[in-house]
Amino acid sequence: MRRNLGRIAVPLIAVALFLAFWEWIVWVNGWPNYKMASPSDIVPAFWKFRGLFFEYGWQTLWRTVVGLLLAVVVGTFLGMIMGFSRLMRDALYPLLVGFNAIPKATVVPILALMFVGQHNLNTILIAFMISFFPIAVSVSIGLSTLEPEYRDILRSLGASQFTVFRKIALPKTLPEFFGALKVAVTLAFIGTNLMEIVSPHGRGLGALFDSGKISADYPLMFAVLLALAFLGIVLYYIVVVLEKIFAGWAERAPG
């Protein structure tokens, strides 16, 4: 009980200290809010635009989640192909690395032209593109590094490749998968916001940030950043909970 309390209290205290430090450093330097808004400037901005924060926050969240789910499906699929087949690994790796090396900001206008006006689709696609790579790589590494004995204990009983995958390869890869998913969550947010900020007449928190910029409402811009950080934390911890449920066995007792 005390340990659980501590696990909630410690991060909250850390956040409170961080906000206090932020407030202090803005105050002590006497920065105007267009240089650096302080938490006390941001709270009124949240209140003033509270309706928009809920509406746009939801849009950003669901687009990110859909993009992420797409990344999980495609990334896992690619990872499986590359994990099981040496040939496919050799064939696909350069393509994937090349694709991943392209800055996604440059893909935004291309997608915007490709699917004009399909704002939801564009945003989801960018979130997907920026986040599937770590998932594909981790699943492929997890599968290709499976020790042959693990396969042999079932193969020697005449089990099919699919059974080996379901009973051994898949659960064994879960810790790596969740590790990659934690990276992918934050990447997907970056993707969503890239599109929301750049595309005209957009929606979502990215668009709110953009309108803050246009109307020189600096506290609003900072408020959007905080809201994004908050959503990122929420999604991250959802992944952590899922990891505990499905791959909790991988966690060793400390010490």
Partner: peptide, 8 residues
Amino acid sequence: QNPVLLEW
């Protein structure tokens, strides 16, 4: 030699 037990 490796017991290859499934950790989960």
